[in-house]
Amino acid sequence: MVMAINFDQVGFTYQPNTPFATPGLHDVSFEIPEGKFTAVIGHTGSGKSTMVQHLDGLVLPTTGKVTMGNQVVTAETKLKELNEMRAHIGLVFQFPEAQLFEQTVLKDVMFGPKNFGASEEDAQAAAEAALKKVAISPDLYERSPFELSGGQMRRVAIAGVIAMAPDLLILDEPTAGLDPQGQRELMTLFTDLQKERQITVVLITHQMEYVAQYADHVVVFEHGTVVKSGAPATIFADEEWLHEKQLDVPAAKQFADALAEKGIQLHNVLDIDQLADQLAARLNGEVDHV
């Protein structure tokens, strides 16, 4: 299924035409490349969650249009028209564990596939495969999701989305609040899924290490609109701009910047391997010609 995504001059207002009207997005135009890993970054309140809700047909743009594959979504679109498309899209909300509701873990994960028409057997097979992927062991299948640890609940909620085998997987700060190991394991899971199934992944995160390490493409939000997009190397190259926008940079890049202030210039450092390679060359007295 073709799932290239395009935002064209999209604006969105919460509670429009009421005294409580709040602008969520304005003049948003950008693309999400198909079959790639796209990271969405920006400060809290910059519009990231509002944007991804457009991808799942949860809200319609107030102005402008969103094109997903051959589906065009505007303010006039009937939500019903989007049902077919939604079957191919998985959205993991911020704090998805808040949405667990079934009596058992297995039933919770089966809900999505069944809701989109899978038989009981197919739904169960899909659920078991997804639970295996997120490393929830079978002895937890019959437990109530509410008797799990926070980290386990998060995995079950994510399994519920993976079980629907989406072509577009949207993750809204999926690792927030987890311990470092839990975060690493989930990020590995998402990248593996992306590669294995060649799906489109959209990840909202504040962790620039992940952006540098995993993303093919980066979109930067500020005050309700997109202010830049491009490859990670491009985004993190413009130091002055990053500083002006008060955006964090990957730790390796921060480190290289601190060295640069002392007069040691390295080139294109985004991750720790690039940093260590160049430093080792310098320390071994090799001249650097990059």
Binding site: I272, A280, N284
Partner: peptide, 12 residues
């Protein structure tokens, strides 16, 4: 500390 480890691995 991670960087120190990486440098050690590179013989520094």
């Amino acid at each position: 500390e991670q960087l120190k480890e990486q440098l050690r691995l590179r013989g520094i």
